[in-house]
């Protein structure tokens, strides 16, 4: 799943409008697909009370937004898990299409966003309130920018691979991730926990699944030709 496919998942799943880009034709090569699930009892997805920001509280009055640090779906699926080629990648052309991050209803959409080094990233404030996006980068340069109502998008890019937690300085519940990857073979799981890495040249790969609270798991997979191999990841969940 490439960036645009990831955005498709985010757009469909969260009602975004600007990300409805069609799925690209299946590229040649092998496919690794599977599902990410959990065992045990995961933490509760708690309703977020946005009382401090009446504009956003009104938007979610009927159905409160839930915490996304551990997001589960039907069949013990885990959402917002990054699955990517962490070793064995044979390189690809740098990604040039612009990735979009929205601050909408006092949420980051998508919650987990993947970019490649130096890929353009546009950050929009769609709310009638100010936001202050603050990526807590350690390898890349950390920054912290206010974005008032109606302000133009912030143009950003990340130079080095890093998993960057992102927060809003004005709304403490707003939390997301910018994952900067050198590989173009990655996917972020949707509500069904499914992922699909396509267009892999023959070879041996290490496939890693990363979940923000449960950490990482890796498996080695060897593919040939245009075969499809199935891989599953199961995280052990604890309620706290």
């Amino acid at each position: 799943m490439r960036v645009r496919d990831l955005m498709l998942v985010g757009g469909v799943g969260l009602g975004g409008t600007a990300m409805m880009i069609g799925r690209a034709a299946t590229p040649p090569g092998a496919t690794i697909s599977g599902k990410v699930t959990f065992t045990g009892t995961p933490p509760k997805m708690k309703p977020i009370d946005m009382a401090k920001e009446p504009f956003c509280a009104r938007l979610h009055a009927a159905a409160p937004v839930l915490t996304e640090n551990v997001t589960t779906g039907p069949g013990d699926a885990l959402r917002w898990v990054l699955v990517y080629v962490s070793a064995g990648d044979q390189g690809s052309a740098p990604a040039t299409e612009t990735v979009r991050l929205d601050q909408k209803g006092c949420q980051y959409i998508p919650h987990v966003l993947v970019v490649q080094p130096n890929q353009p990233l546009d950050i929009y404030n769609d709310d009638s309130t100010s936001h202050n996006i603050h990526p807590l980068a350690k390898v890349n340069a950390e920054w912290n920018k206010s974005q008032p109502i109606g302000a133009p998008p912030i143009h950003a890019k990340w130079e080095s691979p890093e998993f960057i937690p992102v927060k809003c300085n004005v709304h403490p519940w707003m939390h997301g991730w910018h994952l900067v990857l050198t590989t173009s073979h990655y996917a972020v799981t949707g509500e069904d926990g499914a992922f699909r890495l396509q267009g892999l040249p023959p070879g041996k790969y290490t496939i890693t699944a990363w979940q923000e609270q449960f950490g990482t798991q890796s498996q080695d997979v060897t593919v040939t030709g245009s075969e499809t191999k199935s891989v599953s990841f199961v995280f052990k969940a604890t309620p706290y």
Partner: peptide
């Protein structure tokens, strides 16, 4: 303290049973 999981007070419910039922709200 972890805003992502709404742990604004830095509670330790895994080890501290008295923290598990603490009610945290913004109003």
């Amino acid at each position: 303290i972890n805003e992502a999981s709404e742990n604004f007070f830095g509670l330790d419910p895994a080890r501290d049973t008295s923290a598990r039922d603490d009610i945290v709200v913004p109003t």
